[in-house]
């Protein structure tokens, strides 16, 4: 063991602080104290351009400030966009719900019906929507514009009673669909489900033709292709056109209701 193995913490701190004179240093630490004292002497430093440093600091501050404001602006924009998107979603949702329940004003409801029917979403028309879900309103189904049914009836051919506009659907449904009307009370949500169709025609194939109800297409050419006009059970043919007409009038729902309305008659 050498003499420099003994160095208490206090002495070490004093050495490091330059507070120990080499003459007073512990054995073996005199040279150390001398070196540390020499090292701690303030050395000379070269001159530098403080103006340049100040300029660098100012530019850095400017950049920092501008980037901060840019960040704030970006955050503001993002928040605005998010708020707008959220408002849009809420508005769409509310409108959609209102349209689906037929709660919109008649004119608006009609527009919603027409528009949404093109994308395969069936909503009630002119306040009849609630009738879709409410069997009590089935009678209202007959309120469908006769003109529509009139235009469709001929298309359906002789088997379709021309005097039953939307009711023609019901007439068709009469025999065949009563028991097959599970959709009757369900809201019409898909394009091909023309509630009226399903109501009345239920199982009839003609009912489920999207084109029929959607387009509200009363074009005769489409009808024959879907349903054989001659068969008595082809009453459903009428559904095709009928639903088409109801679609035309924006009353696919009402045609459905008319169908369903017919059903009770049976």
């Amino acid at each position: 063991m050498t003499h420099h193995d003994f160095l208490d913490a206090g002495t070490a701190e004093r050495l490091l602080a330059g507070a120990v004179d080499p003459a007073d240093a512990p054995p073996g630490y005199g040279p150390v104290a001398a070196v540390l004292t020499a090292a701690s002497a303030p050395g000379s430093v070269p001159d530098i351009d403080f103006g340049e440093l100040a300029g660098v600091a100012r530019r850095a501050a400017d950049r920092s400030g501008s980037s901060t404001s840019r960040r704030s602006s970006m955050i503001g924009k993002l928040l605005t966009m998010k708020a707008a998107a959220a408002a849009g979603v809420i508005l769409l949702g509310a409108s959609g719900a209102a349209a689906a329940t037929g709660s919109l004003p008649n004119s608006v409801q009609e527009i919603a019906h027409d528009t949404l029917s093109h994308v395969g979403v069936d909503v009630p028309n002119q306040g009849h929507g609630d009738q879709v879900n409410d069997p009590k309103h089935v009678e209202n189904g007959t309120e469908n514009p006769p003109a529509d049914s009139a235009t469709t009836v001929p298309a359906d051919g002789p088997t379709a009673p021309g005097d039953q506009p939307v009711g023609t659907n019901g007439a068709n449904h009469d025999g065949t669909t009563q028991t097959t009307e599970p959709h009757h009370s369900e809201p019409a949500t898909t394009g091909d489900t023309h509630t009226g169709d399903s109501h009345g025609g239920a199982g009839t194939t003609g009912d489920v033709k999207p084109g029929d109800g959607h387009s509200g297409d009363s074009t005769p050419t489409t009808v024959p292709t879907t349903v054989p006009p001659t068969t008595p059970t082809t009453g459903p043919h009428h559904d095709g056109p009928g639903s088409g007409t109801s679609g035309t009038s924006g009353t696919s729902g009402s045609s459905g209701t008319s169908g369903s309305g017919d059903a009770p008659k049976i």
Partner: peptide, 17 residues
Amino acid sequence: LAEHFSRPGVTHAAEPG
């Protein structure tokens, strides 16, 4: 550091420091 100065070849010409 103390060990360094105690090595052979490193003399303490004039203690202390």
